[in-house]
Simulated assay, not measured.
Amino acid sequence: MLSGRGRPAAGFTVIELMVTITVLALLLMAVAPSVGAWIANTQIRNAATSIQMGLQRARSEALRRNAPVRFTLVSLTNAAVMDDSCVPSDTGVSWVVSLDDPTGECGTAPSDTAAPRIVETHAGGVGGGRFTVAATTSGGDEASSVTFNGFGRVVGTDGIGVIDIDHVEPGADYRALRLIIGLGGTVRMCDPAVTSADDPRKC
């Protein structure tokens, strides 16, 4: 087709269009793995941050109330819905901050009087994150809860001391994170893959 001045009209030929689509497809295939890893690492980071905030909330409530407050990891029938199907679990992705044992009562509204006197809850399955949680005592035994006393310190030695958060399919592209709860009540996030003693991310 000629333009008004006798030159071919500007536009793409079928071959040019096919070449462009092929190049774009190759570029998308090249970046897809890194985008997938970035999304997975973001989910791991968000999960670790949420759990860390839950632990800090339990400790601050214990200090505010001058009374024991517990943080409990729980499993739910539907990980995206906090309800009374909750069971304490060392691999639970959801959590509850309460004054009493929340087993079977996680759907109760926050209250200072109604058992289990819930302070805050969080359903870890919201958003469909593909991550795993593994909680142990400082000695390596399975643990699902930790209690802070009125001084903000950890009660006993059988509570959670370490929480590892990783992708459901561990691999070199995924950055696992670890939360360490000190006896004094401090909660620190670190990276178990870091080995340099000078790196503050080292566990």
Rank of each mutant, 00 (worst) to 15 (best):
M1A: 13
R5V: 12
A9T: 11
A10Q: 13
A10Y: 05
I15L: 15
L17T: 15
V19G: 05
V19A: 11
I21K: 02
L27Q: 04
L27P: 01
M29S: 13
V31S: 03
A32V: 01
A32L: 03
V35F: 15
R45W: 00
R45Y: 00
N46A: 15
A47T: 06
A48N: 11
A48S: 15
T49Y: 01
T49W: 01
T49K: 06
I51N: 10
I51Y: 10
Q52T: 05
M53A: 15
M53I: 09
M53L: 13
Q56L: 14
R59D: 10
L63R: 11
N66D: 12
N66M: 10
N66K: 11
V69H: 02
V69T: 07
V74D: 10
V74S: 09
L76K: 06
N78W: 06
A80D: 06
V81L: 14
M82E: 04
D83L: 12
C86H: 06
C86L: 11
P88M: 06
G92F: 08
V93A: 04
V93L: 05
W95S: 06
S98G: 01
D100F: 09
T103E: 01
E105N: 15
G107E: 06
A109Q: 01
S111A: 08
S111W: 07
D112A: 13
D112G: 05
R117S: 03
V119E: 03
E120T: 14
H122T: 10
A123M: 02
G124F: 04
G128R: 10
T132L: 13
T132P: 00
V133A: 06
V133W: 08
T136G: 03
S138P: 04
G139P: 09
G140V: 09
D141T: 14
E142D: 13
A143V: 11
S144W: 09
S144M: 06
S145C: 03
S145A: 14
T147H: 06
F148Q: 05
N149E: 08
V154F: 10
V154T: 14
V154H: 10
V155A: 11
V155M: 13
V155E: 15
G156N: 03
G161Q: 14
D164P: 00
I165K: 01
H167R: 00
V168P: 00
G171T: 09
G171W: 10
A172T: 14
A172P: 07
D173W: 01
D173A: 15
L177R: 15
L179W: 11
L179D: 12
I180G: 07
G185V: 03
T186L: 02
V187K: 13
V187Y: 12
R188W: 09
M189D: 04
C190R: 03
A193P: 00
V194E: 14
R201A: 12
K202S: 07
K202R: 15
C203A: 06
C203S: 08
